[in-house]
C-alpha cells in the first residue's frame, strides 16, 4: 500500500506527464499559484524523490543554477541529509525514474545508470540534441487587435520574445507582430552556436527583397542551439512564431534577472495594443485615412502596402536605429 507521500509524488508525476513533449510548464517570474499547488505541478526533484517532504521548484527545473540544490548537496556532504539519488535508489528498480522524467523534460523512463548522470549517454543526448529539437508546449494565446500574444512568454520592445524551457534554457524568437508586419523573410542571418547574445544589441538579421534589418536580442546569453528549420525556411517563423518558429535556444545562469528586464504577459498585451495603434497611424500616413470598419490587418503588411518605408518601419518597431 502506498503512503500518502508516495501518493502525492505519484499524482505530481502524473500531472507532469499529461503532455509528452519536453518543457510543458508555464514558468513565470511572479508566482501566481500557492506553494501547495506548485508542489503538485512543479515538485522539486528533492521532493519528488521523497528526500524532503515539501518543496516546489522555483528555478525552472535547472538544478545546475539552483541555490536550494546547492545547499542541499552541502547538507548531504555534511552527512545531515539523504541525497535525492539515494532516496530514489531505495525504490524498486522499475520505479526508479530518470531525473529528466522527474523534472518533466521526458516521458516516464527508468534510470539504467543508478543515477550516475555524468556517465549516462541518454543524459548527454537529451541535453545536446533532444531538448532543442522539441517545440514548446502550446500555451493559451490571447489576441490583441489581430496579433497573437501567448501566455508565459516575455516580450522585448524590439518585437522579440523569450520563454523559459524546463531545464533552464531560454528560447527566443520574433513576435507575431513583427512577422506579420515585415512578411516572410527571404533569409535569416543567424549567428552560430556558442556566440554570445547581448540584450538590446543586434543579435541577428533578416533580409526581405533588397532590405536588411537588424533584430535586437531580448536577452543576454550564449547560443546553445539554432533552429535550423527556421534558418533554412524563414517562413516557419511566420506560420508558427511561438512554436516551430523559435530561432535560438540560449543559456544564461541568471534567468530571473534576465527576464525581469522584459515585459510580462499583461505588459505585453498593453504594449502590443499600443504598437498596433502606432502601426495604423503609419498606414494612414501612407495610404490616407481609413474609412472602413471591421477586419484585421493581413499578414505581410509591408508587402501589401508598397508605400511603407522599410527603414522607417524597422527603426520604429524593431528599435534598430
Amino acid at each position: 500500500m502506498r503512503t500518502q507521500r508516495e501518493e502525492t509524488t505519484a499524482q505530481a508525476v502524473e500531472n507532469r506527464y499529461n503532455s509528452t513533449t519536453l518543457g510543458n510548464q508555464v514558468w513565470k517570474l511572479k508566482q501566481e499559484k500557492s506553494d501547495k499547488e506548485d508542489q503538485q505541478v512543479k515538485p522539486c526533484i528533492w521532493m519528488a524523490s521523497g528526500a524532503v517532504a515539501k518543496k516546489s521548484c522555483n528555478n525552472f527545473f535547472d538544478c545546475t543554477s539552483c541555490k536550494y540544490d546547492a545547499a542541499m548537496e552541502q547538507k548531504v556532504a555534511d552527512g545531515k541529509q539523504i541525497s535525492w539519488q539515494d532516496s530514489m535508489r531505495r525504490r524498486e528498480s522499475m520505479e526508479r525514474l530518470c531525473r529528466h522524467s522527474m523534472t518533466m523534460r521526458m516521458v516516464p523512463r527508468v534510470c539504467a545508470y543508478n543515477y550516475n548522470c555524468s556517465s549516462c549517454d541518454f543524459d548527454q543526448y537529451l541535453e545536446d540534441v533532444l531538448s532543442h529539437r522539441t517545440k514548446h508546449a502550446a500555451f493559451a494565446i490571447d489576441n490583441v487587435k489581430g496579433f497573437n500574444v501567448p501566455q508565459g512568454y516575455y516580450f522585448h520592445s524590439g518585437h522579440t520574445w523569450a520563454v523559459i524551457e524546463n531545464g533552464g534554457h531560454i528560447k527566443v524568437g520574433l513576435d507575431d507582430f513583427a512577422l506579420k508586419l515585415l512578411g516572410k523573410a527571404d533569409a535569416l542571418d543567424m549567428p552560430m552556436i556558442g556566440v554570445e547574445l547581448n540584450r538590446n544589441m543586434p543579435g541577428w538579421g533578416l533580409k526581405r527583397r533588397d532590405n536588411l534589418a537588424d533584430v535586437l536580442s531580448p536577452v543576454d546569453g550564449v547560443i546553445v542551439q539554432v533552429n535550423e528549420k527556421a534558418r533554412r525556411n524563414p517562413g516557419v517563423a511566420n506560420s508558427d512564431p511561438y512554436g516551430d518558429g523559435w530561432l535560438f535556444s540560449v543559456h544564461n545562469s541568471d534567468i530571473k534577472g534576465t527576464l525581469k528586464a522584459l515585459m510580462d504577459h499583461d505588459e505585453s498585451m498593453a504594449w502590443t495594443g499600443e504598437e498596433v495603434n502606432r502601426l495604423e497611424e503609419m498606414i494612414e500616413s501612407v495610404a490616407g485615412p481609413m474609412a472602413t470598419d471591421g477586419g484585421i490587418l493581413l499578414p505581410d503588411i509591408y508587402g501589401n502596402l508598397p508605400g511603407l518605408d522599410w527603414k522607417q518601419l524597422t527603426r520604429l518597431f524593431l528599435k534598430n536605429s
Partner: peptide, 26 residues
C-alpha cells in the same frame, strides 16, 4: 467585402465623398 490590407470589412466609405457600402455578410 475587402480592402487589400485587411482580412475583410463590414463597410467602406469615400471619406468626405458621396458613396459608402455596408456588407451584411459578417
Amino acid at each position: 467585402l475587402f480592402i487589400p490590407i485587411l482580412t475583410h470589412v463590414y463597410g467602406e466609405a469615400q471619406l468626405n465623398g458621396i458613396a459608402c457600402i455596408v456588407s451584411t455578410n459578417r
